[in-house]
Amino acid sequence: MTTTNTPPLALTMGDPAGIGPDITLALWSARAALSLPPFLFIGDARVLRDRAAVLGFEVAVAAAEPETAAAVFAEAIPVLTSDCAAPVVAGTPDSRNAAAITGAIETAVALTMAGRTAAVVTNPIAKAVLYDAGFGFPGHTEFLADLAAKATGEAALLPVMLLAGPKLRAVPVTIHIPLKDVPAALTEDLIVETAVITARDLRRRFGIARPRLAVAGLNPHAGEGGALGLEDDAIVRPAVERLRAAGIEAVGPLPADTMFHDAARATYDVALCMYHDQALIPAKALGFDDSVNATLGLPFIRTSPDHGTAFAIAGKGLARPDSLLAALRLAAELAAHERAAKGTA
């Protein structure tokens, strides 16, 4: 377990009407058996107390700062409060609480970039709820990238979504866009930039000295020599050649239908896929309950459970905490790798 000399993880509330509070309570209640890395919960303490009463968890909740969270963690859930504006009812989201949801994320990022927390771990949000309150981003990932860019004063950052599970790591080059828009959005430069960020973060945060990238084709059979589409030969293949020339171990374009069986996965460290479902379908099929969404390309570590708010089962004691547990453990592991790389372990 992480020592009190190591900053805690910053765990955001997510949508308080979803299962974020449920799985947070379940994990903290089993903290000793799970050797759970200490976290600072950033959100409304009342939500945790009320949900604990509904679910039958006997927990203590205590106000804390990052510097005191690890010491508090053994006896109570340490909370840095971000109060909700409206009453929270499990399973019934309310856009009046959008400011508390996004405020918790902003606080977690600020604390982590200041070195007071080790990484950001985000409980699930419901984008539709935030859109009703004027949220201007496609999702968590893009919001985090905007916060990072504002904090550093740098040009807009390219956030890279990595699905990390026990059997597969997969990255989609294009993410939350309609499938019909993918060919126009996919460029040689975008593939190269995504791959460079992926390889860099696999080295510095995952401890993989020479990452091996398997690059999927866009079309069936990777275009089959142009018979099934020209993009693979015109866009994907030149990108792979540029990566290899830059010293990155990349192969492709590969037919996506033969990339994800056991023997194929043994030949690479990450699959670089051309669109959302090409990456997420195999990732979730191979690790539905324990895959983690990690964002690469940011100046801080961020992980998240790879599932949504699950409003239909919130407050009913049915939510499984496996993915959040994996997200917390991966965040702690990545933070340790990064500290070791910087010589501050």
Rank of each mutant, 00 (worst) to 15 (best):
Y275F: 14
R339G: 01
E193C: 08
I175A: 13
E249P: 08
E75T: 11
F300C: 05
D290L: 10
F41A: 13
L34C: 10
V160G: 05
L330K: 00
A250W: 00
I191M: 12
A335N: 01
F41R: 03
P183A: 11
V270G: 00
A345Q: 13
G20H: 03
L144D: 12
L334I: 03
V54K: 14
F288A: 14
M113V: 08
L202A: 12
G56C: 10
A133L: 11
L158Q: 10
L286H: 09
A30H: 09
T174A: 09
A118F: 01
A170E: 01
S82W: 07
G225I: 09
A71S: 14
I313E: 07
L27E: 09
D146E: 15
D233L: 05
A266F: 07
P159W: 05
L34K: 12
A17L: 11
P220N: 09
A62P: 06
T295L: 14
K316P: 06
I235M: 14
P93A: 11
L144W: 08
G103P: 08
F260G: 00
R46W: 05
A199D: 13
F206Y: 13
A227I: 07
V120F: 04
T194L: 04
A279M: 04
E188S: 10
P305F: 13
A234N: 11
P282Y: 03
D83W: 08
F137N: 06
M13E: 04
P7V: 03
T117N: 05
L147P: 02
D50Y: 07
L11H: 01
G139D: 09
E58A: 15
A283Q: 12
L36G: 04
A227K: 10
G287N: 13
A151M: 12
T122G: 07
S35D: 11
A108N: 02
K316T: 15
M274G: 00
L144V: 12
I191L: 15
A86F: 08
L190C: 12
S35I: 06
V47P: 00
F57E: 14
P78K: 11
L296S: 02
L34A: 11
G153W: 09
M161G: 06
A149F: 07
A145G: 14
T152C: 13
A345P: 08
D277T: 09
D257F: 00
P178D: 03
R96G: 07
F39R: 15
A310P: 03
T141W: 05
G315K: 05
L298T: 02
L25C: 05
H276N: 13
L36Q: 11
T107Q: 15
A336I: 09
G315P: 02
T303E: 14
L272V: 01
A145L: 14
E75W: 07
A33Y: 07
A279L: 03
M1A: 15
L157W: 04
T258S: 02
R116Q: 07
A250C: 10
I175P: 03
T141M: 15
R244D: 00
E75H: 11
A30E: 14
I42K: 05
A326K: 06
T344W: 12
L190K: 12
L230F: 03
A110Y: 04
L228N: 03
A76H: 04
P166G: 12
V251T: 15
Y131R: 15
A326S: 14
E142C: 14
A345W: 08
V61P: 06
S291F: 06
A263P: 05
E188Y: 06
G217A: 00
R96V: 02
C273T: 05
